[in-house]
Simulated assay, not measured.
Amino acid sequence: MKTINIVAGGPREFIPDLSEYTDGDTTWVGVDKGTVALLEAGIVPQEAFGDFDSITEEELLQIQKAAPALHVYQAEKDYTDLELALDWALQKEPENIRIFGVTGGRADHFLGNIQLLYKALNKDTVVKLIDRQNEIQMFEPGRYTIEEKVRRRYISFIPFSEAADGLTLIGFKYPLDNCHIPLGSTLCISNELIHSRGTFSFAKGILIMVRSAD
């Protein structure tokens, strides 16, 4: 399995055109109301997760008829519907997991969804949160090469740990060399690549990278 696309129930106006993300060996997964968004986009999910307390009975019947595998949970549980879907997806060990419908709306859900990226560290799966304007990804220490994206030219790095040590940016408009970035710093907000590709590396900590359109 190459790619698993998960669509959650966030505000529709933040969800990009999902047809752009159907490529090759792709499995689609709906999470609660996100399953309805998939069906309305003409995409039949292979799996659907949730307590489905945010949809109508008619919508639930549509999901039951369409989804080959339906995972229904009680509303009172220790994990969000998205976390249950992500755990399932990580067990499949795909190359990529792309998650949509997780920005906008309730801030508590959005912050929790950011933290779910931590589950993918130390795994061989690239996990991204994607909306119309942003891609969000989390990294452990190492050296990484990134390609220019015209539609998301702005690149920001934000510590997820107490600090990120030894951050070096090469090929960026604002380069850095072995820099200490403490939690709470905005030093690395809104950078840009000056070539078709660039590299970033750091020695300690955890970083969030956000690639954004203006």
Rank of each mutant, 00 (worst) to 15 (best):
2 K>V: 11
5 N>D: 03
6 I>Q: 01
15 I>M: 06
17 D>N: 11
20 E>T: 14
21 Y>D: 08
24 G>V: 12
27 T>W: 06
40 E>C: 03
45 P>T: 13
45 P>D: 09
49 F>L: 14
50 G>N: 10
54 S>C: 12
58 E>L: 15
68 P>F: 06
69 A>T: 14
79 Y>I: 09
79 Y>H: 09
87 D>H: 15
90 L>F: 13
93 E>S: 15
93 E>W: 10
97 I>A: 12
98 R>E: 11
100 F>E: 03
107 A>E: 04
110 F>H: 04
113 N>R: 01
114 I>E: 03
118 Y>S: 15
119 K>Y: 07
119 K>V: 10
120 A>K: 07
126 V>W: 14
126 V>Q: 15
127 V>W: 07
128 K>N: 09
133 Q>W: 09
149 K>N: 13
150 V>I: 14
151 R>G: 12
151 R>Q: 14
155 I>P: 03
156 S>K: 01
159 P>L: 04
161 S>A: 10
163 A>V: 10
168 T>K: 10
168 T>V: 08
169 L>S: 00
170 I>N: 09
171 G>D: 00
172 F>A: 00
176 L>M: 05
176 L>I: 05
182 P>A: 10
182 P>S: 12
186 T>W: 00
191 N>R: 02
196 S>L: 07
196 S>N: 10
197 R>E: 12
